[in-house]
């Protein structure tokens, strides 16, 4: 009874040659809930080019989901701000570009989706760890990050124009560095 002749996830098997109880589906079959239809949600492509729209509305819940997923899967390298100074980079991983780069600010949403789904250069893909809906949520949140660090003062809600420094806040002005003369 303690060890029953059944397979639990990842349990070793002496029946299959490779010793795995959890089987990969044979070529050409689709497991339940794993259908990858050739739609925008799964490819991020419109007529072969990365699209710049969301396949579903970016509501507040979607953005918050995006933030949570970004902080789990991307922040170790890209940092929570998206500036590319994450912990793993500090330990020697190649430094990714900041999301504030003009090229990435102009990149369509579908490009971010594609980077997560297929990897990019030395960056691994996250297709196995993040499902397509969450990948879109992260892409939308990257837009939030890009906006938040470039927001015009007029976009702040009334009453928040100049956040008064409270003891909890880090002062927003950096220590003044003398300007370098050529």
């Amino acid at each position: 009874m303690h060890v029953q002749p059944k397979y639990l996830p990842l349990r070793q098997s002496d029946f299959f040659a490779d010793g795995r109880g959890s089987r990969t589906p044979p070529e050409g079959t689709v497991a339940r809930g794993q259908l990858r239809e050739d739609t925008y949600l799964h490819t991020g492509l419109i007529d072969g080019k990365p699209g710049d729209t969301m396949p579903f509305p970016a509501t507040r819940e979607v953005l918050e989901r995006g933030r949570e997923r970004f902080d789990i899967y991307c922040a170790p390298c890209h940092s929570r701000l998206g500036d590319g100074n994450g912990m793993i980079v500090q330990r020697g991983f190649r430094r990714p570009p900041s999301f504030q780069e003009p090229r990435l600010r102009q990149a369509p949403l579908g490009h971010f989706f594609d980077v997560m789904s297929n990897g990019f250069g030395v960056m691994p893909d996250y297709a196995a760890q993040v499902n397509p809906r969450d990948r879109w949520a992260i892409a939308a949140y990257i837009r939030v990050l890009q906006f938040s660090q470039n927001a015009p003062a007029s976009a702040l809600p009334a009453g928040q124009q100049m956040p008064s420094p409270s003891p909890l806040q880090v002062p927003s002005t950096a220590p003044s560095v003398p300007e370098r003369k050529e």
Binding site: P9, G92, F93
Partner: peptide
């Protein structure tokens, strides 16, 4: 029900370089 044990690929995400 199952928390999931990471596949080798997950380790290699970082350890391909570190």
């Amino acid at each position: 029900s199952f928390a999931g044990i990471p596949p080798t690929k997950t380790c290699m995400n970082c350890h391909a370089q570190i």
